[in-house]
Amino acid sequence: MNVTTGVYNNSPGRDVSYTGPLYTTIVVMCLIQSAVACLGNLLTVVIIWRTPSLHTVTNRYILSLAVADFLAGILALFSTLWYIDADLENFLSACKYCCLFYYVFLFGTFEASMSNMTMIALDRLVFIVYPFVYERYATGANANSLISLSWCVTIAFSVLPLKLNRFDDVGTCLQLEVLSKEYQVVGVGTVLVSSLAAVTASYASILVVAKKQRAAISARVNNNYSANHVANRRQISVFVLICVISFVCWVPYYTCMIMGVTVGVSYDVFNFCAVLGLVNSAINFILYSYMNKDFRKSFSTQMCRCRKR
């Protein structure tokens, strides 16, 4: 984390600036992201937990994603501490494990979010393209095993900064200087590229199948089948939107990492892109949960019960 100005380099001494519209924007973004991600994803967990009809295989992955995004919301709130006061920033930056554990949670929530988004995409792909295979193997037990495995991988990936760091040498909490280049470029890049590739390929395949279904529908007259197709098209539109937003939120951050370890990048741009990546955790709640009709219905039911009490 850093709140300094200039360009990433190895020169000692930097002018610190906590004022200006950019840092005000960053703090506001962090606070809004934290509120939406924490409240929204906590609501998702509660609704799924208390609604038996939502205990589906897919919603198990969404529940896991909500937990990851909830933690990202907590992290965003913690991030504001680096921006609101210079003395507090200096204290946190000088504290080795305050610094390193921030990156542990940052890349832990990042990897967890990416892996859960990938599992959701693959789940929808198999459900639509290979329905008989899905019916046979998509069980709650198998889903729980995959989720447990993904969180084990997440923990293993996230704790690497505790080992792969140069804090004792550089004495700063600037990400591109304190963390190893291999971890940022290769490690983070592998997670990001592989996840986005899997998500994009899955939704592209779903779109191809949907196109074939649309052609089949045009050859037959069946109002019920047409209504189901319209519902599927809406769901597919959400899938495409998820893919686009993930690119918009995370690719700039990774691009800044590459630039930072090669040609250099502005601190201001890097900070903004880092916060933009966290914003994806708040948007996921809207896309995966609130835009789901069954979830909205369950939410209304739970609210009515609370009012009756």
Rank of each mutant, 00 (worst) to 15 (best):
R234E: 02
A197F: 05
V170C: 06
V199T: 10
A231R: 10
F157L: 03
A156F: 05
K212C: 08
V153K: 04
V230A: 13
L160C: 12
Y183C: 02
V186W: 14
R214T: 09
Y183W: 09
L149Y: 13
Y183V: 04
A219E: 15
A204R: 10
V185C: 01
K212I: 01
S218F: 03
A198L: 10
Q184A: 06
S180K: 04
I236K: 10
V186C: 05
Y253P: 02
W250D: 07
L176P: 01
A215T: 11
Q213L: 00
L174E: 15
I245P: 02
S150T: 09
P252C: 08
A197T: 13
I206W: 07
T154P: 01
V209E: 14
V159M: 08
N228Y: 11
W250L: 12
N223I: 15
V170T: 13
Q235A: 10
I242K: 14
V193T: 01
K181D: 15
L162N: 06
Y183H: 04
W151T: 00
T200R: 07
W151I: 11
R234C: 09
A201H: 00
V240H: 10
L164Q: 12
G187H: 06
S180M: 07
S145K: 14
L149M: 13
Y253S: 09
L146P: 00
A219T: 14
L241C: 09
A143H: 09
K163P: 02
V153H: 04
Q184E: 08
R214W: 06
A210N: 14
A197S: 13
T172L: 03
S180G: 06
N144G: 15
V170N: 09
R214P: 01
S246M: 14
E182D: 15
C249E: 02
P161G: 05
L149W: 15
A227W: 08
V186S: 09
I245N: 05
V159Y: 09
V251W: 06
V238W: 12
G171Y: 07
A231V: 01
V208F: 08
F167Y: 14
A198I: 11
A215Q: 15
L179E: 04
N222E: 10
K163I: 04
R166Q: 11
R166K: 11
V188G: 03
